[in-house]
Design a protein around this nucleic acid. Sequence first.
DNA 1: ATCAAATTTAGAATATTTTTCTATAATATT
DNA 2: AATATTATAGAAAAATATTCTAAATTTGAT
Lengths: 154, 154
Amino acid sequence: MPQLDATDKALLELLQNDSKQTNKALSLSLGLSVTAVYERIRKLEKSGVIKGYVALLDKKQVNRNFVAFCHIKLVQHSQDYVVRFEKQVANLEEVLECYHISGDYDYILKVLVADMQEFRTFMVNKLTKIDHIGSTHSMFMINEVKHSTKIPVP
Amino acid sequence: MPQLDATDKALLELLQNDSKQTNKALSLSLGLSVTAVYERIRKLEKSGVIKGYVALLDKKQVNRNFVAFCHIKLVQHSQDYVVRFEKQVANLEEVLECYHISGDYDYILKVLVADMQEFRTFMVNKLTKIDHIGSTHSMFMINEVKHSTKIPVP
DNA sequence: ATCAAATTTAGAATATTTTTCTATAATATT
DNA sequence: AATATTATAGAAAAATATTCTAAATTTGAT
């Protein structure tokens, strides 16, 4: 694990806000030369601190504005069952996030589709076709208050 | 709302996977000229389909690997209370996502901190300091099965 | 504290990429 | 079918990323 100094942290914050800034712009923000910025970024990429760069889309504009949170309980919790379940869930493109969690349910999923009809189709044809699911409980997004990909760097 | 053809959709998928690809690389993938790719991207940016470009970090490497999901119920639901609550929550950097949802609770939050100690500090000093919170219920991530920012384009 | 090694930085040179420009081709409109 | 609009390609120009060299700074050991 690499040691991040204050400049690295500032740089990570800038790149998490906008990764399309030029190194010159970054160098001005940070008070460094272009090469210094370039080398720092390279290091952060190589060490895996920066996982990658992506474009973020507007859900509404691509007609995927229906968000559901599905809680799932498995019928059994043997290694095999868990591994198989997780693989199958990860393969569903509608499932953007899946976490194994503590509490009454085993998993929480964030599912993205166009509307309730599509969600129904997803449940019937995809999710509940997965083996070893005991029970599910879904909640639906009424409004998105905040959605950020920006991890605060300590 | 702009009409997206198959090429736009393919382009959006490519850019959601890796926004650092050059236009030449994209043009090869799509079988177009560099200029055609350039103009399409410009259009997608201007119309707001592409909201922006960001660097994605590795939670573990920046010591923010503790994820909590907090369900929150408000004591009242008047316009004023809701607006104030949402503003205050959105200002907390530990809260990466916040959704108003259907069901037993009003909101679900995704909170990112270093560890349980920090989570406790967050709850005591920040979250529960927010007005009008009735009750909360937290679940903790045991394992991240999937976490993608990629919206499937229909 | 002092020295040597390693790392970081800056500025210039080079390579690559983005952006603009012009002309042509495809698509839509009447 | 004729015209206007939009999309595309290729070349030229501008901007940017990357490499290189050398100087400066930091680090670690003595």
